[in-house]
Design a protein around this nucleic acid. Structure first.
Lengths: 227, 227
DNA sequence: TTTAATTATTAGGTTAACCTAATTTTATTA
DNA sequence: TAATAAAATTAGGTTAACCTAATAATTAAA
């Protein structure tokens, strides 16, 4: 029996672990993420450990087991399918879809998800470039990496973003950078890694390293030398 | 704050009250309906009374207040819109639709319901002939009434059913009676009210009064004399 | 390396939603 | 109408999910 609460814990652990792979996922991190207090999380973690969905100790933090990861990826799958559906079929704006998908992802009907997935054309990625896990929980392969890893001269295409905040997305809109746009890295400032990019706009644009870390791109030439 | 549990209580009271208008809705009736025990219902009714969604006493049972009815009708609206959507757009069979709609009806987004309602073409009735309340909770007008109220010679059209059980729907399928079919009441047995009906099939068919009570029809001639 | 600050954990409490068993009230029937 | 059956209610208990406050453990700083 997996309740929507358990689904949310497993999803949170998955997301936190993927957000920063070097950092352990502490009970406190989960508590912040879910906007509840650490003791509540500890209590629930004990249950999830007993159910063999996670392992936990204070040094390695919470880690998903195989079956825990399976559930988490299934929720991520549902979430991204619903987001895509809301955006593409029902014409919701990208900023509206997340909150509704948070609810829809817990509707328990595999057949419903299958039908919705059919309707949107069985894509491998959602409209923001995030991969949609398949039914077995496998993520589609892609060579997406942060724009910040580019070397000078790199030609690449924007496949997604790893930050979804309103302010960041508006910033990209202002710069006139969108999904599938091509970028050329003209220069990299040696002091602070600011990038000078040529894009479809006339003028080259300057972008901070901080922003470039959140933009996911793929090189247009194989073995182009980027990290 | 209305949780899905409160929504389900209010919907249950609405449905029980409408199922048999002469009968009061007792706490025990609600308990049966929701598959929980009477003391649990009593406890929750006290809360719903305090919130002014219901009135309750053992003689009149539970009755929805104006604001309680508003919530209940909104859930009924969502439920019927989702059922129609699943059936018409996503090609689910009628027997599959109910269970999924029970979950979807609690997704809290008016905009989502609006969009879905647009997609199905803003109908007044769902595919089984049940009326879809509007946003203000008003039910579309119709002259639907049980077939059992027909007088001899009545010509009418099938608009829906008030029982949705598998066995009853299969029975209708066997008789070859479907939505929008025309019926003529040829004879009414004076002893047990069995109906002899002519339909699109060659042979006239016999139908028990019990079954006729569950079929909703509308007379094809105004003031035809039926009750 | 001791102290101070931070972080993790335990202890103990609350509320909502459920339950069973006991009691009271109402309805039925002999 | 008194006895019995049925239904409604109350009493009291459990579990899950939350909390705050206290304590223990770890990390950082003096």
């Amino acid at each position: 029996m997996k309740t929507y609460r358990e689904e949310n814990y497993l999803k949170a652990i998955y997301q936190l672990a993927n957000h920063d792979k070097s950092k352990v996922v502490s009970a406190t991190d989960i508590a912040h993420w879910l906007e509840i207090k650490p003791p509540t999380v500890l209590e629930k973690l004990a249950i999830l450990v007993k159910k063999d969905y996670v392992t936990y100790n204070k040094f390695d933090g919470a880690q998903l087991t195989t079956s825990g990861k399976e559930i988490a990826l299934n929720i991520v799958r549902r979430h991204r399918i619903w987001e895509t559906y809301l955006y593409k079929q029902l014409k919701f704006s990208w900023s509206e879809v997340h909150e509704i998908a948070e609810q829809l992802e817990h509707v328990n009907s595999d057949k419903l998800i299958d039908r919705i997935y059919d309707v949107i054309g069985k894509p491998d990625f959602d409209p923001h470039g995030d991969p949609i896990p398949n039914k077995q929980g496998k993520l589609p392969k892609s060579d997406r990496r942060p724009l910040s890893q580019s070397i000078k001269g790199c030609k690449c295409v924007v496949l997604g973003v790893s930050e979804h905040s309103e302010v960041f997305l508006n910033y990209l809109t202002d710069l006139n950078i969108g999904l599938n746009d091509k970028l050329i890295v003209e220069q990299i400032n040696a002091y602070d890694d600011t990038l000078k990019l040529s894009t479809k706009t006339k003028e080259p644009i300057l972008m901070s390293s901080k922003a470039a870390q959140q933009i996911l791109v793929q090189c247009l030439k194989p073995n182009c030398g980027c990290r």
